[in-house]
Nucleic acid binder design. Structure first.
Lengths: 216, 216
DNA sequence: ATTCTTAAAAATTTTGAGATTTTTATGTAT
DNA sequence: ATACATAAAAATCTCAAAATTTTTAAGAAT
């Protein structure tokens, strides 16, 4: 059992959830204490994560969690719209019934969670499930596009997007709006209307284009 | 003078020009002999290059130059069209005179080289200049798009594209076609016609969409 | 002849210590 | 007080050897 994979994925998760502060230092030596391995091993993993854009590396001055930057959020949103629209349209063309089934299933799970969160007062324990469900829905949208490169690129953008958004406050007011959005994207995709699908993906993400995405 | 930067950029260049064969192994220990540093340092750099997509890394079985794959070429071309069109259109909107000047200059240099290559029988010694000029032209197209993330992403795709194309045979038959293409992209961009510019970028890259891009 | 074991060789990964660089702290001069 | 130089501390980077894993080779059994 190589501990490396664990360390990699554990750090990845901690970087996307609000465990580290924006801009905080990531010292391999200190992190390595938490895992049962040496600093060099963590250092190597930090390099790999900086490849994903989840960690900033600067020559001779180590690793840091990327700062929160409104402009970066806009850029990431813009690219998500571009890649996710393109990927979804390709999926509509190539995906067939199998893709439609996967998408329906992914949406069913997501909408189930969202409704529960919407109903509850303190949805803290549902957050992790929501994160993974929302990720799965958006990944499923582009899953049949036929381009691993596009999917991989979208994965990076999506992760950085999540990282920028890291929500310490977990009231999730936007959930009720999201329920509508996700449903309307599903409908458009299932109807096969490419332009409508593009529009709805755009609408869904557009609120992050203002630079005013609120964090608390 | 940190040797690291040199090693990084040197390896990067060797990976994009035809110095290594597709699929060949990259052993840190052996590579480190060529540079004045240890295997670990090279290993670290190989990780960074695998972040760029120029090197494949597999757990417990080291680093390799990515195989040549017609399908990957298609995917990369598709993404280049997507990102380069989008970036250029944004540059048209935001770039202003400064961008137009840069683009004109970049095209002037490129077209100068291309004409010389077209005229010559053995253009071997002009290849390096052509590579950097062509890269600069395409980078300049998107340079005023206002999104560092987009530019960075395009840079990776472009590098992988070049790597897939690695031309050992250096007759450059396609150059004469390219002269026309580049000129028509410039014209469209300078005229401010967004759709026309998109079309011409598409046309320029479309020949790589068949999977039939010939290598020798 | 093919498959399965086992042993040797080769390659990859991890590690901790030493070398280098940056940061912080302290003292001195303007 | 501010700016500059120097020294101490801390952090980062490099390295080569040890530990692990994979690959290759040789031999035995079906």
């Amino acid at each position: 059992m190589p501990p490396e994979i664990d360390v990699y994925h554990d750090l990845e998760k901690r970087l996307i959830t609000a465990e580290f502060q924006h801009g905080s230092k990531l010292r391999a030596e200190i992190l390595s204490d938490g895992y049962g391995c040496s600093a060099s091993t963590v250092r190597e993993i930090l390099f790999r994560l900086s490849a994903e854009g989840l960690v900033n590396f600067q020559e001779q001055r180590g690793f840091r969690v990327p700062d929160m930057a409104p402009n970066k959020m806009i850029e990431l949103t813009h690219l998500r719209i571009l890649l996710e629209s393109e990927g979804t349209v390709l999926s509509i063309r190539k995906g067939g019934v199998a893709w439609e089934a996967r998408l329906t299933a992914a949406h069913y799970k997501l909408s189930h969670i969202e409704k529960r969160i919407h109903a509850q007062n303190d949805p803290s324990d549902l957050i992790d499930i929501w994160f993974s469900s929302e990720k799965e829905f958006h990944q499923t949208l582009i899953s049949a596009c036929g381009s691993d490169t596009l999917k991989q690129m979208h994965g990076r953008i999506y992760a950085q997007f999540r990282q920028q958004l890291m929500v310490a406050d977990r009231r999730f007011d936007f959930i009720s709006e999201n329920i509508q959005h996700h449903a309307s994207i599903l409908d458009a995709a299932m109807s096969g209307d490419e332009e409508l699908t593009r529009d709805r993906i755009h609408i869904h993400l557009a609120r992050h284009l203002t630079g005013m995405t609120l964090v608390s």
